[in-house]
Computed example of a mutant assay.
Amino acid sequence: MFNLEIKMITLSKVPALLLMSTVFATGTAQADVLDLSGLVGNANLYSLHNIVVGNNSIGGGIAAAGNISVSSHSVGTGAYGNYSVIAGNNFNYSNGSLAGGYYAGGTATISSNINLPNTPASAAPAMSFASTSSEVVKTSSAIGALAATGNARILNPYAPQQVTLSSGAGGAKSVEVFNMTASQFASINNLQSTLDSSITKSLIFNVSGNASWGNMGMGVLGGYNVLFNFTDATSVNFNGIQVLGSVLAPNALISGGNGGITGTVVAGDWNSTLTLGNKAFVASDVAGFVSAVPEPETYAMLLAGLGLVGFAARRRKNKAAAA
């Protein structure tokens, strides 16, 4: 009798426990790994709204939830597979070349002097602008909430400034986070570093406020995996500057020219003649960062949990009917 009672209690609790584990599984987030390029399908430039580019080149593919207008521009490939351009709405292209295929959810207007690949893509890519844009905003906010681990020592409190980057308490880390205002960064004319490059590989700069940068030397950042995160900016302008790193500014219009950005760019809107390289921000383990994108294992756990809940419920029902 004692054993039977234990079995009945255990069986009655199984569905509830499995359901609880399933609920917790759906809320579990992928911890620590920051993969900006993977989040936007390896696009070189991703915009939550519109893209306007001209008179320069982009090393990889581009994608925008709204309209894309390109003139006198060459665009590489690699966005969500082999796409050069993915436009959620209209795509207008004049005078340039595409290395891969293109897709437009609205109307595609391509001039006759465009150099296209032999078989341009036409099918809709396997992606969702609504989902991707939502995750991009959440990711920027999560990065912006990180506490600084490194120090940006300002040696001269008056512009122009000399700033030295160094590790904070606890010594060198594989990823160092620096929190600065856009105006502080804009006034730098001599950026130096005492970081141990044998340990520190990635640098994240959380930059608050709207930015207008120009004539800034970033050579010291050349050997690192760098991300500039503008969580709250609505306007970011780069003019006459080579930005050595990737840029995440999901709420901002990025503009400027006479320079370039070497990495992945995510913008609210893009209207610029800047050259874009295709050196993606390398996926990195970042202490304290929690991604909003669930792990594949989470979905597997959810399905398995629901299956076991159903099995246990049917078993109880059959036993009750047989009694």
Rank of each mutant, 00 (worst) to 15 (best):
V265T: 15
A31I: 04
G310D: 10
K7M: 13
V220Q: 03
L18H: 05
Y93K: 08
N50L: 08
S72I: 04
L191F: 11
A99V: 07
A287V: 08
T164M: 15
P15C: 07
E297T: 10
G101D: 03
A280Y: 10
L45Q: 04
T273Q: 08
N225D: 05
S97W: 12
A148D: 01
A87V: 01
G41D: 06
M218E: 13
G268D: 06
K173L: 06
L308G: 15
I114Q: 14
A322Y: 05
A64M: 12
L306V: 07
Q184W: 04
N251V: 01
V309H: 01
E297I: 14
K173P: 02
I199W: 00
I68V: 11
A252D: 04
P15A: 08
L227W: 02
A186I: 09
A104H: 10
A148I: 02
I86G: 07
L227C: 03
K319L: 11
F289E: 00
L18T: 08
A252N: 04
Y93I: 12
A121G: 08
G168D: 10
Q192H: 03
S111T: 14
G66W: 04
F289M: 01
G310E: 10
T164H: 10
A252L: 06
V243Y: 04
N206A: 09
S272V: 03
G66K: 02
Y46D: 05
M180V: 15
Q242V: 07
F228G: 03
M216A: 13
G305H: 07
A145L: 11
N210D: 14
V23A: 15
A304Y: 05
A126G: 07
A147K: 15
R153D: 05
S174F: 00
G170S: 06
F178H: 01
I254V: 14
R153V: 09
A142G: 09
M1T: 10
N179Q: 00
D196W: 08
S187A: 09
V309N: 00
A79N: 07
G223R: 06
T262Q: 06
V177I: 15
N271L: 12
S193Q: 05
N271E: 14
